[in-house]
Amino acid sequence: MNGVVLRVDALHKAFGGVQAVEDVAFAVSAGELLALIGPNGAGKSTCFNMLNGQLEPDGGLIEFEGRNIVGMSPRAIWRLGVGRTFQITATFASLSVRENVQMALYSHAGKLTQFLSRFGSELRPEADALLAQVGMLDQAERPCGVLAYGDLKRVELAMALANQPRLLLMDEPTAGMAPRERVALMELAARLARAQKIAVLFTEHDMDVVFSQADRIIVLDRGRLIAGGLPAEVRANRDVQAVYLGSGH
């Protein structure tokens, strides 16, 4: 494993006196896939939203490549080299698949303020290369509004890779997909990340996906990290079993 890309320390967030995230600390390295799991309400989304800039933490440190990004806007964080996908896919429904990816590429290249030139004439090969990577090139002309859900997830992945991120944040990447598709999508993401040395942090409900794809796993419960380590270690952890199975006492 190479150097640390994302380092989180002593992260805190409370909503009206309720501690949603408390003293959370972890790190992700380049090319590593770290899964953040935990039952509903454990604080995963809160944690995620602080990382991507949508929520400001009450305290703690979030370092991306050695730089503190607490208080930065989602836009600024993206510009540093952080890509993300959403739990419920967020793509531009009225634009074609290729245009969606080109949008991200244009933004990365700072070409969006052009006012009179035709959109889509530039960065087409780059867009097609990204689409080829996720296996969506054959559907490049179709509007996103008509795509199947699994295909949308792949378009999102291509968009997330457009700014050549060193860190990829994936919130429930396989939510809403058929079981067989889930593993396939995560395999794809893992393969691309490892090849490009991207650090990946993802949350996931599907334990098959988590245990087959993650390099390491951390477990969140009621705002606190209760376990962390290699998949086999986590699987064997009694606290984790208690949280997930509701038994063990």
Partner: peptide, 24 residues
Amino acid sequence: FSPFGYVLRAGRDSPLRAEAIGID
């Protein structure tokens, strides 16, 4: 049909995604 106009359409379709790919 310029990049500017595409941003507007993109922002209407998904403000969340627009923000997430660095668009103000």
